[in-house]
């Protein structure tokens, strides 16, 4: 099965830019995990701060453009992996290894189809 692993953290712990020393340190840890995962890793990326987010919202067929992320929450979506895993336990084992600076939540979602299909 393929799973998306979504990383939620309070983005302010990395400062207010995308290239702070804190961000560089966590990115290095992510690359370590990616190389450990080998073939299990399919794709992934870190996301720019939510200050760069724009939302296109459709209500009653009418589209409007908004500044900011879909929802204002205490922890924001900051990055994702797509992995291949035998089952949920296997995916949970990967999710446990995803680095976070302080507190954070790693959501595991099965993909309905293999990526790219």
């Amino acid at each position: 099965m393929h799973y998306m692993i979504l990383i939620y953290e309070d983005e302010s712990v990395y400062g207010d830019k995308n290239d702070t020393p804190e961000m560089q340190a966590i990115v290095a840890k992510h690359w370590d995990l990616v190389s450990d995962l080998g073939d299990q890793y399919k794709t992934g990326a870190g996301l720019a701060m939510t200050s760069a987010a724009t939302t296109v919202r459709t209500v009653n067929g009418k589209q409007t453009i908004h500044d900011g992320p879909f929802a204002e929450t205490r922890e924001q979506l900051g990055g994702y992996y797509v992995i291949e895993a035998d089952n949920l336990d296997d995916a949970i084992a990967v999710a446990r290894r995803v680095p976070v600076r302080f507190d954070g939540s790693i959501e595991i979602r099965p993909l309905l189809h293999p990526p790219g299909k």
């Binding site: 895993a85 035998d86 089952n87 949920l88 336990d89 099965p110």
Partner: peptide, 14 residues
């Protein structure tokens, strides 16, 4: 079914 919960007795670590 959807999340892929394995039909296994977990290993001692868990």
């Amino acid at each position: 079914a959807d999340a892929g919960v394995p039909f296994e007795v977990p290993g001692p670590d868990h």
